[in-house]
Design a protein around this nucleic acid. Sequence first.
RNA 1: GCCGACGUAGCCCAAUUGGUAGAGGCAAACGACUUAAAAUCGUUCAAGUGCGGGUUCGAGUCCCGCCGUCGGCACCA
Length: 863
Amino acid sequence: MSERRKQYPFDKIETKWQSHWDQQGTFKSLNPGDEGFDPAMPKFYALDMFPYPSGQGLHVGHPEGYTATDIISRYKRMLGFNVLHPMGWDAFGLPAEQYAIEHGIHPRDTTAKNIAYFKQQLKSIGFSYDWDREINTTDPAYYRWTQWIFLKLYNSYYDEGNQAATPIVELMEKRKEEYPDENATEHRSFIDKHRLAYIDEVAVNWCQALGTVLANEEVVDGKSERGSHPVERKPMRQWMLRITAYGDRLIEELEDLDWPEGIKSLQRNWIGRSEGADVHFELPGTGNKVTVFTTRPDTLFGATYMVLAPEHPLVDEVAEAEHSESIDNYRNEIATKSDLERTDLAKSKTGVFTGGYAVNPINGEEIPIWIADYVLMTYGTGAIMAVPAHDDRDNEFAKQFNIEIRAVVQPKEEENDETSCFTGEGIAINSPLIDGLQTTEAKEVVTDWLGNNGFGKRAVNFKLRDWLFSRQRYWGEPFPISWDNEGGHHAIPEDALPIQAPEMEDFKPTGDARPPLSKAKEWVNHEEGYKRETNTMPQWAGSCWYYLRYCDPNNAERFISTEAEKYWMNVDLYVGGTEHAVLHLLYSRFWHKVLYDLGYVKTKEPFQKLINQGMILGEDGQKMSKSRGNVINPDTVIEEYGADSLRLYEMFMGPLEQVKPWSNKGVEGVHRFLARVWRLFMENSQEGEWVLSSKIKEVEPSKQQLKVLHETIKKVTHDIESLDFNTAIAQMMVFTNAFTGAEERPIKELTIFLQLLNPFAPHITEELFAIIAEIFPQIIDKNEISKMPWPEYDEKYLIEDEVEIVIQVNGKLRDKMITCKNDSEEEIKFQCQELEKIKPFLEGVTVRKIIVVPGKLVNIVAN
RNA sequence: GCCGACGUAGCCCAAUUGGUAGAGGCAAACGACUUAAAAUCGUUCAAGUGCGGGUUCGAGUCCCGCCGUCGGCACCA
């Protein structure tokens, strides 16, 4: 197209208005306290998930969600809202560091370069961001507060009584009252075990290639999510965040959020709450006991063996000497296998008998204790009671090793499926205490019995694990922590923040578990007797609270002022990809709740409404990727068709949440539409210049034109509200088609149309509006369309005097008939039976009933 | 295996939530304009809604059972 004449001068228009908005500060939003701030104005907070500024620049997936929030933002402004619509950079992270290592360039420099490129690209699409609120997670002025929030976590514990994070000093005082004689070390160790940010020795996912540990969530099929490098299990001392304390609240408080059900259930699933009971099994002759967790205490009578995780601390105690060799062999075998191999081998169960026995508290029976890797040390108590009659895994294991299978639950209905074991609910049998009871009741009775006799208690478990929060990298937030020579950790005072990483020539991984920062000796040994923590925070840290900082981005005193927080929060609309359905959204909800508990924010949840945009596929229907060669670059689209066409096409492709393939023909289609809009207003003069069309006049619109206009206002308004942008655009095409043929084009009505189109295609509409404003100052007294109020529709123009309705006989379409809006049902019933085409169908049959749907149809039921 | 989304003209998608299957775009065909083409304008074409049952006067829409595509989880006791 570049060689051909452009259908309209979008290239000139777009850059012109982009710099106009920039210079005029058109989209600046005011905070409470700012000059000109109007407290009566309602607020709207439209947020995009901020991008990681990669070296590749934007791909067409980015502007999909961004255009949606931009349309909403522009629309809400025209409705009179004070709109917060910001953008920023999630700029810490592995790719920049990897690139830095490979090319010897400081990640700060590559990051700055990438951000500049992203920003220029975003500006070229005409998004109405308030760039004065731009934030960058790698800016010390920003991560100072990330570190500050970490200190809040460090200095808090979860008070089970109040179900809330509470300052750790309160726990210290309580402890001192209860244990006045406890020595300082013991006191300290108790306190440190209760912090929301704590140190623990855990089996971590160590990735040698990346030189860092990874969170469980960052490991996919035993490989690193980024780069697909092998990951191994390795015990290391790491910072952990106690997200599990919030398990219940993270589930319960999803309830009132306006999120897609799918995402809610994804989160519930991930948190994986299950209710059941802890049951104590005595180890005869030792005085010791093993506790298991079960969700089916009603099947206790059917427990015919017990399984400990191979790593369970009591294995050595229960093991008989004659079995110790096979146990050792088995454990070694497990240890050398990666997670991937362990799950691969899941097809058949493995395990060994320990030689030990445990006493089933409910019937005094001694059952054999096995170890097997299908029991995980990291879930529940790391031990289970096995009920092979009613659990698939136990069933498989028992069959493999010829262990007794004892049925204790009878299906309610005859479900003669003998091939698999029965895991559903039914009636208890072979269980003296609960025979005849149904499952729900039986669970209660057994749990109560266990509690009353000291053999156990009600218990809840989560699949969710605490959040592994350390990374062995350079390009991340340093921890505000230093260590004394006795191995005790100390918070660095708030007024010393931010803690900045030292300038280093060499920030390559050390090749072992020591982080790169450990090489900066001077920085580490910052104070006599103290060494700095050399791990850094994971990339998720910065994105956990960025939505708060946008509200008050330049506050040097506080992470957000109380006024700004109270005014702007919470986020009214949050748009981003499903890939963040669990990680980012769970982590930031967790941090938000901690800040809420500690009184720093007023809302329990950060994101009221969430929408996930669907992925955009390549033209071949495959995921876009360099190797497939099907990547569409937004820059090229803008160059050929303009930003308005890109925006419009992204929205016209289909429903926002749906996955859909790109089509260059489709872009041409919407581009043609914009060109039609242009020619609705403009024509070529004899000199070949674009001038206002001579058909544009101050005339009264026809009744038909008014109807189309008001239909369009109505549909576009409703569709924007419900985020159905594709159908809103279709309606605007209808409008354009209806007005294209008109010899006289009423200026007032066409201007209203421009306002409707403005949030979608801001450049062309600003330009046309400005041209009209100049020629018809008596009609338009503003010079920016962005400043115009949103049009309203009037139902009276939508009502038709005459409507064609459908006549059916027994549900089959037989004729059509014109009715007046005043016709009564009786009249219509009578009239339709008189129709020539209908009569033959009514001959020789009895009319049983006539259904009239006003303005729609009549159905004559006859036989 | 479990959870979720989706399945409507050749393609992308609509359908007032139970009321004429078609709004819009792409593609195709024809016509007008043109020396011709492109662009533009106009006209036309097409599926009975993945499959099988059911409820109803009436089902793309509700219910039951399958099939297919995509995404997520996957020894969580």
